[in-house]
């Protein structure tokens, strides 16, 4: 019985081979379900282990937000995938997990994804006077401070 089965907007819940992937369950959800999903994990004793983003605009036209929830002790690890349109804001989860505050700032800094109701959505790693709209982990990023090639050729 899946932990999230009762939540509307959870599109797909799959069991994953832990030995190969390092996590136990994968959930693909809609943006509206995120607050309830996060709250459910909080209420069930999970902590937010990691949150990041993937730039999938070229393949699917979306950003994929990745949330990883884990239990203390012998870990049960749930991965949550959420696909958002590049123009959409995602809801901030910092009011449930304060750990999300900096993680969301990093996603904003690196990918330009904005989070609604975030307590302090400013750059976290890049300098505060870095050009607006320059987000280094976008696949089509060009370093605004360099005229030559960025480090390393695509392989």
């Amino acid at each position: 019985m899946s932990l999230l089965a009762h939540i509307e907007g959870v599109q797909e819940s799959t069991d994953i081979d832990y030995n190969a992937k390092g996590f136990h369950h994968l959930h693909v959800i809609l943006i509206d379900a995120l607050p309830q999903v996060t709250q459910t994990f909080y209420d069930s004793g999970f902590y937010l282990e990691m949150m990041t983003c993937q730039d999938r605009r070229e393949a699917d036209g979306v950003f994929r937000l990745v949330y990883q929830f884990c239990t203390l002790g012998a870990p049960q690890r749930h991965l949550v995938h959420l696909h958002i349109d590049p123009a959409t804001e995602a809801p901030s989860m910092a009011h449930i997990f304060p750990a999300a505050d900096w993680l969301e700032r990093e996603v904003f800094d690196m990918y330009g994804v904005r989070f609604s109701n975030h307590p302090n959505l400013i750059r976290i790693l890049m300098p505060e006077d870095y050009p607006a709209g320059a987000h280094p982990l976008l696949k089509d990023f060009v370093d605004p401070e360099s005229e030559g090639e960025a480090d390393g050729q695509p392989v």
Binding site: M126, L137, F141
Partner: peptide, 21 residues
């Protein structure tokens, strides 16, 4: 805290290299 001074762009380097490099 302003933590970015220690940031050295390992993710971007990883993106542009194969696993061994």
């Amino acid at each position: 805290p302003v933590i970015g001074y220690g940031h050295r762009a390992h993710e971007k380097m990883a993106e542009n290299r194969d696993y061994l490099k």
